[in-house]
């Protein structure tokens, strides 16, 4: 592996991303995943990591609207993509209904899985404004949580969906 290292081109890669609505250019070592670029190059540490192998969901973000695992997404493949992270969820000082519901209804305890869960839930509600509890559980079945036993997470998503529907706004 180290002999291979000598031969490999270690120049940085350069891409343009749209992160939480803002265009950013970023240079990075090309082996970095989207997770590493968000956290280490863009200082967006709201996105967490629990395994870096696609086994926990802590790093979930929306890429072009779809919940993906940033730990298994080559940053190189995100050139031109639109990324949404937990930092972009609130509008100004106003919490997104999902955020408000999670902090009011026990959806977040230690908070570590929360960003991944929130972004996954947003991906769900953007497509399905009125999901059943079963559908919410299915959509979140790729996000491990160690604190809540999921019940208050499901409560929170259901509550946020209700709020969003009442507002008649797209999440």
């Amino acid at each position: 592996m180290n002999t291979a290292l000598q031969k490999v081109d270690q120049r940085k890669a350069h891409i343009t991303l749209r992160v939480n609505g803002e265009e950013v250019e970023v240079s990075f070592a090309p082996y970095k995943t989207l997770l590493e670029v968000l956290r280490e190059e863009l200082d967006l540490t709201g996105t967490k990591h629990g395994c870096e192998l696609g086994e926990c969901g802590a790093c979930a973000v929306l890429v072009d609207g779809e919940p993906l695992l940033s730990c298994l997404k080559l940053a190189l493949e995100c050139d031109g993509a639109s990324i949404e992270t937990v930092e972009g969820l609130a509008e100004g000082p106003e919490l997104h209904p999902l955020q408000a519901a999670f902090s009011d209804h026990g959806g977040s305890q230690c908070g570590y899985c929360t960003p991944g869960v929130l972004m996954t839930a947003k991906g769900l509600l953007d497509r399905e404004p009125n999901p059943s509890r079963e559908r919410i559980k299915e959509a979140l079945s790729g996000n491990l949580c160690r604190c809540t036993g999921y019940q208050q997470i499901v409560d929170s998503v259901a509550d946020a969906a209700r709020t969003l529907r009442e507002r008649g706004v797209k999440a």
Partner: peptide, 8 residues
């Protein structure tokens, strides 16, 4: 956990 270096 990080990827090794590679060409793309």
């Amino acid at each position: 956990m990080r990827l090794p270096w590679f060409q793309y």
